[in-house]
Design a protein around this nucleic acid. Structure first.
Length: 418
DNA sequence: TCTGGGGTCCTAGGACCC
DNA sequence: TCTGGGGTCCTAGGACCC
């Protein structure tokens, strides 16, 4: 019988910050989203102060208890590197590991004797070597392992490991847990099920599969099958090929000047092109969108335009197309709040010349390689296209950014703490 | 003053084509 | 009198996930 594990970092972004800053340990600490907008990770101490996930930080800061709370701007370079360290520890000890998100990895635990002991040792090693505290859930399907992980996190008596392989233990938890606890059942599906009298996981598992399919389509039906103990989501060791690359931002202030929007779009397109080349891909479609602020009472306007192009990873060509699309998106008289560039129809970059190519592929590839090499060596933005912004006026706020401890030599201050 | 970003999958209507 | 149906593309939006 297949046996899955799900290991995830506790308050992962916070733990990553704490790994290098002992002064932050055992403190209420939050990590904020881009633009220092809202809380996206909280330590248990911060949760105890009532800080919710997604809490708008500008509101919480006005409250007196905020004085005791430490906060950091998000530092994705650091978190990505910490994630890799966790993976390195796991892959040495577990036959197969599937990174699911930056802080979660599914494990193939089939056939391992004394699984409880094994998982506790695994946690200890990840903690010691990668400096990240974790919880582990175990089950015969991914969905059950995910649920077990959630139980492990909530019940301190379990010591951070929860095993739901035993059907009787499962039934006990299914009867007491609400349907909203399940991976894949969100707010809408949860409300629909509750309205139909399906409140607990036990109710859901008992329900007629045809009724579930009608209510929640195939995705909901799959969740039910998995909760019944039949695995239909295999471990995938190769990440599926990417469908798209998106770069978008909300602006530090509203934009009503087409030249500013143009500069933002150019900057997004350039960054998307960098990501594209870093993965050895070319894009056959470009899309641009912009919209007004849904929060401030401004009139709502949102538009997206897309176009096919001859597949390329050339920054200049992608910027050119993005600007053309931006002109179609732009309507005067609105104050734009957020915009973005998306690259789609991705395919592996081709080496050889293309018949009827509309641009010199070799020349383009050489120029891009030169630009990427310089930027890798001297920092992003050292070489850039003139239409992009070096320090944009519309830029993101990151007022409390930790040093890039692990990835930037000049900022590697306390590597000895490892 | 101030509310993230990056993904996947699904649905649906209209335009257009044969 | 009876007035198709299947396909793709585009655009928009919903739902869910981390």
């Amino acid at each position: 019988m297949p046996t899955f594990g799900l290991i995830d970092g506790n308050s992962f972004y916070c733990s990553a910050e704490q790994a290098f800053a002992p002064g932050l340990r055992s403190r209420p600490l939050v990590v904020l989203s881009n633009n220092d907008g809202c809380a996206i990770a909280r330590t248990v101490e911060a949760k105890a102060l009532g800080i919710r996930m997604g809490e708008p930080w500008h509101l919480f800061r006005r409250r007196p208890e905020s004085k005791d709370v430490e906060w950091r701007s998000s530092n994705y370079a650091l978190y990505g590197d910490m994630s890799r360290r966790v993976y390195d520890v796991l892959i040495e000890r577990v036959p197969q590991v599937e990174p699911y998100s930056i802080d979660e990895m599914f494990l193939d635990l089939e056939g391992i004797p004394d699984l409880d002991r094994f998982c506790r040792d695994l946690r200890r090693d990840v903690r010691q070597i990668a400096k990240i505290p974790t919880c582990v859930g175990i089950g015969p399907t991914k969905t059950i392992a995910k649920l077990a992980n959630r139980i492990a996190k909530k019940d301190p008596a379990l010591g951070s490991v929860c095993d739901l392989r035993d059907p009787d233990i499962r039934a006990h938890h299914y009867a007491r847990l609400g349907i909203a606890e399940v991976w894949g059942i969100g707010g809408q599906a949860g409300a629909k099920l509750t309205a139909a009298g399906i409140a607990t996981i036990a109710d859901f598992v008992r329900a007629d599969p045809r009724v579930v399919r009608d209510m929640l389509t195939v995705t909901g039906a799959r969740v039910q099958t998995e909760l019944r103990g039949a695995s239909c989501l295999p471990l995938s060791l190769m990440p599926p090929p990417r469908k798209g690359i998106a770069v978008s931002r909300s602006f530090g202030h509203m934009i009503d000047d087409p030249l500013q929007l143009r500069e933002a779009i150019c900057t997004f397109a350039a960054r998307a092109a960098e990501k594209l080349r870093a993965e050895g891909l070319e894009a056959g479609q470009v899309a641009v969108f912009a919209h007004t602020n849904p929060h401030n009472g401004d009139p709502w306007y949102s538009a997206q335009r897309q176009a096919r192009i001859e597949p390329t990873a050339d920054t200049g060509l992608l910027i050119g197309e993005a600007v053309r699309l931006m002109r179609a998106v732009w309507r005067p008289g609105f104050r734009y709040f957020k915009a973005g560039v998306m690259l789609q129809d991705l395919e592996p970059a081709r080496r050889q010349a293309v018949l009827f190519a509309t641009f010199d592929r070799e020349k383009s590839a050489a120029a891009m390689k030169a630009m990427d090499t310089v930027n890798a060596r001297f920092g992003r933005g050292t070489l850039r296209i003139a239409s992009t912004a070096a320090t944009p006026g519309w830029g993101t706020r990151r007022q409390n950014l930790s040093p890039r401890y692990t990835t930037q030599a000049g900022e590697m201050l306390i590597a000895h703490s490892f």
